[in-house]
Amino acid sequence: MTDDKTLVTRVLTGDMQAFMRLIKQHERLVAHMVGRLVKSEEDREELCQDVFLKVYEKLGEFSFQSKLSTWIATIAYRYAINHLRKQKMFYTDIPEEGLFTKRFVEESNPEIVAEERDLDNIVLKLVEGLPPQYKIVLTLYHLEGMSYPEIGEVTKMPEGTVKNYLFRARNLLKEKVKMYLGKEELL
């Protein structure tokens, strides 16, 4: 894998093969971030394209203060939340903790359980029902292996908030899985 500095320098000199390599190295990251927040498959593809067009446009401003992947993730995050705002989906407000937890855990989601017998798919569908902030920290931590400070840099959230959101999101999912496992043990 070509290192960030060499790759960026080559792209800046107009090497399109290098840009193609940059896209291929980071498309999974962008697809995960956008995919977790944007439901429509068509919008996802277009948004991911816009992210990389912006990356190309702004690459000259990248100062290597962070990893290239963190910088690209920041752009992807901004595009995804702007898309949510355009769709008039509330992004800034996290639902009130107690109420949301109660609703999320107590909701029986019979349609998900009926459709999916596989626990993995049930959990992945439950993730979709979480607030966007929870989804993004889960994605960056568990799928992209980013550290708390890196997630904070991407989302501009304080490290404490990142930790708190991760804890709460996993806790909500655990409560649902516990119910599922409990039922299985009874059978």
């Binding site: 399109m16 896209i23 995960h32 995919g35 593809e45 067009l53 992945l124 799928l143």
Partner: peptide, 28 residues
């Protein structure tokens, strides 16, 4: 339950981009 949650969250959720995604962006 936590072990299951951690295992599943690490799995690729399968958000695939089109096969010629990079080529399309470069074309644009």
């Amino acid at each position: 339950a936590y072990q299951e949650v951690f295992r599943i969250l690490g799995k690729d959720p399968g958000y695939e981009l089109s096969a010629r995604f990079a080529e399309t962006v470069v074309g644009k």
